[in-house]
Structures are given as structure tokens and as C-alpha cells.
């Protein structure tokens, strides 16, 4: 039978061994020796039966308490060891995250596309649908239907590129997105609210502000009772949406064969300076008629401006040719 003193010594020695166990396996050995089937504690419990009931209870309780304390100590030590092992393992797994190269391959949409899509989104928000037309056009859609008959001097201003197709002079690379107005009118009955972004062509030598191939966006609204006020309001709504608050717009008289009254629209920056952005006006009755729309029943407005120039301004590129050099060093900047 264990006496109190022996028990006390046993407990303190075992507690020290638990604390001193340096690894999970050492701890397991200590636990086995002190609390296992062959331990002195178990042996002592087996002898309890030889004691009288009173004594049995007292000694039994003492033995149980010792056992519980030691078991708790083992568990605590176990956690402690597990924690430090994990810490050691994590320490061993150290990585220098800055070694990872930052050469992530990300694709970049062309700045013209980014601007184009932003414009689409703004006008979709204003209730417009997006119309399209062919880049190779008939001279009728590009000119005649837009109130620019064959002998009209305005035709010369367009520096048109003609293509070898059909009868001579009948087929050209569209010089503006305006023929989409005609196609939209012929394709659907009013009311019509469309924009038409697209690629256009002019026989222009490339320089910092001109390219023979560039992009425009066209707007066309045809409805009952459309007036100059609707045009001015739409331009203003677009100005705020695209450029931001503090920007405003004005219309001033201008001349285009396909609109009348015609206007140029300018954007005023918050610093008061003006930016000439594009042309607009009330759709000319001859253009409505060409599109199969009765000018007595319907009226409308149209506007148009360059996408490339907006892209240049947005990203601070100073030479239009840079946008079309397809240099990845430029493309991946934006």
C-alpha cells in the first residue's frame, strides 16, 4: 500500500517528468509509466479492495485526485508540445513571398475598346440600343441618303476611299458612322433610340491627330415631337455621365448636310476651358425621307464624335499613331 508520503513523491516526480517530456513520444512514455496499466497508481488501486470501506473511500479519493491532476497535466503538456511542433513546422516552411516574380500575364483591352465600351454603357443607360452597319458601304448609304448628292461639294471634304466592287464609285469604305442612321431607320420603325459606334475610313495621311482608320460613335433619336431641346438635354446628360460633374456642354450653330439646324457641341471643363467634341443637329427632312420616315409625323436628332480622341485624352497619349502601333509596351500600360 502507498503511503501519503510515497504518493506525494510519486505525484511530484511524475509532474516533473510530464513537464520535462521534450516530445510527444517522451510524453507518451511518461504517461504510460505513471498512468498506464502497469503503473504504481493502477497497482495501488487494485489494492483498495483490501481496505475497509471507510479507508477505501478516503484512499480511493486521494488516488483519483492524483490521477486526474496528472492526466490534466499530460493533456496540457500535450497541447503545449503540439503547439510548439506546429510552430517549428511553420517556421521550417518559411517562404520569401517577394521571390515570386511579378510577371503576371494580364491581357489589356485596347484603349479605343475601353472608351468604346464605356460610351456604349453610358448610352445604354440613357435608353439607347446599339446599332451596327458594314464598314464597306454603298455610296448611297454613305452620301446620297444623308443629303449629300453626287455633286455636293461636301463629298470632297470626306477624302473617301473607294473599293473595287460593283460599278465604279458605287462602293466605298464608310467615311463616317452616319450611314448606320439610314440602316437603322430602314430596319425599324420609329421610335428609334440608337447609337452606332464603329470603325471609319478616310484618305488621310497618318499624323499625330489623324489616322486613315479610326473610330466614331453616332447617335440617332427619332420620335414624336423631338426638338433641339431633346438634343441639348441628351448631350448634357452624356457630358455629365462621361466626363463627370462640373463638366457642361453647349451647342453652337454649324453646318452638316445631314442635319438642320446643325450644331457643333463643345464641352466646358471645370476650369472654364472649352473642348470641341463633335457635330449634331436635327435630322434633315431629306435624310428622314431616305430612311422611309415621314418628317411630318416624326422628328429626330443625331450626333457624332470621335472615339479615338477621347481615348487619347483619357489616357494622356499625345500621338494617335501610338494607338495603332500595336506595341505591347504601350498596350499593356492601360
Amino acid at each position: 500500500m502507498i503511503d501519503d508520503l510515497t504518493l506525494l513523491t510519486f505525484e511530484s516526480e511524475t509532474a516533473a517528468a510530464i513537464t520535462g517530456a521534450a516530445s510527444a513520444s517522451a510524453l507518451r512514455d511518461v504517461e504510460h509509466a505513471a498512468l498506464g496499466r502497469d503503473s504504481r497508481l493502477v497497482a495501488a488501486r487494485k489494492q483498495l479492495g483490501s481496505l475497509d470501506p471507510e479507508q477505501r473511500r478516503t484512499v480511493g479519493k486521494v488516488l483519483n485526485d492524483v490521477r486526474e491532476r496528472l492526466t490534466a497535466a499530460v493533456a496540457a503538456r500535450h497541447d503545449e508540445l503540439a503547439r510548439s511542433e506546429r510552430t517549428a513546422q511553420l517556421a521550417a516552411e518559411r517562404l520569401d513571398l517577394t521571390e515570386v516574380p511579378d510577371s503576371v500575364v494580364v491581357g489589356h483591352a485596347h484603349v479605343v475598346t475601353q472608351t468604346w465600351e464605356l460610351l456604349e454603357d453610358i448610352f445604354v443607360g440613357l435608353g439607347f440600343q446599339v446599332a451596327e452597319g458594314p464598314e464597306v458601304e454603298t455610296d448611297w448609304h454613305n452620301f446620297d441618303a444623308l443629303n449629300i448628292p453626287a455633286d455636293h461639294p461636301a463629298r470632297d471634304g470626306f477624302d473617301t476611299i473607294y473599293v473595287n466592287h460593283g460599278s465604279p464609285g458605287s462602293t466605298l469604305l464608310r467615311t463616317h458612322t452616319s450611314p448606320v442612321q439610314i440602316r437603322a431607320m430602314l430596319a425599324q420603325k420609329p421610335p428609334i433610340y440608337v447609337i452606332a459606334p464603329g470603325r471609319v475610313y478616310r484618305r488621310d495621311t497618318a499624323d499625330a491627330t489623324h489616322m486613315p482608320v479610326f473610330h466614331q460613335i453616332e447617335g440617332l433619336v427619332i420620335d414624336r415631337g423631338i426638338s433641339l431641346a431633346d438634343l441639348a438635354g441628351t448631350i448634357e446628360a452624356f457630358t455629365e455621365a462621361y466626363f463627370g460633374t462640373g463638366f457642361s456642354s453647349r451647342l453652337r450653330p454649324n453646318y452638316f448636310p445631314f442635319t438642320e439646324p446643325s450644331a457643333e457641341f463643345d464641352i466646358q471643363r471645370p476650369d472654364g476651358s472649352w473642348l470641341e467634341l463633335g457635330g449634331c443637329g436635327m435630322v434633315h427632312p431629306n435624310v428622314l425621307r431616305a430612311g422611309g420616315v415621314d418628317p411630318e409625323e416624326w422628328s429626330g436628332f443625331a450626333f457624332g464624335f470621335g472615339i479615338d480622341r477621347l481615348a487619347l485624352m483619357k489616357f494622356g497619349v499625345d500621338d494617335l499613331r501610338e494607338l495603332y502601333a500595336n506595341d505591347v509596351r504601350l498596350l499593356t500600360q492601360f
Partner: peptide, 24 residues
């Protein structure tokens, strides 16, 4: 008439599209 009356005096309003805007 518009020129001499002044375009800016025509006012501004945003027409309401009955069809709703969307991409094809």
C-alpha cells in the same frame, strides 16, 4: 430662326426612350 433666337434658348430635356437600352 434658331441661330438668331439662340440655340441655348431652346432649353434642355432628356427624351425618354420607350424601348429601353441594351446590347444586342
Amino acid at each position: 430662326v434658331g441661330r438668331h433666337h439662340g440655340y441655348s434658348r431652346s432649353g434642355r430635356r432628356v427624351p425618354t426612350s420607350a424601348q429601353g437600352g441594351r446590347l444586342t
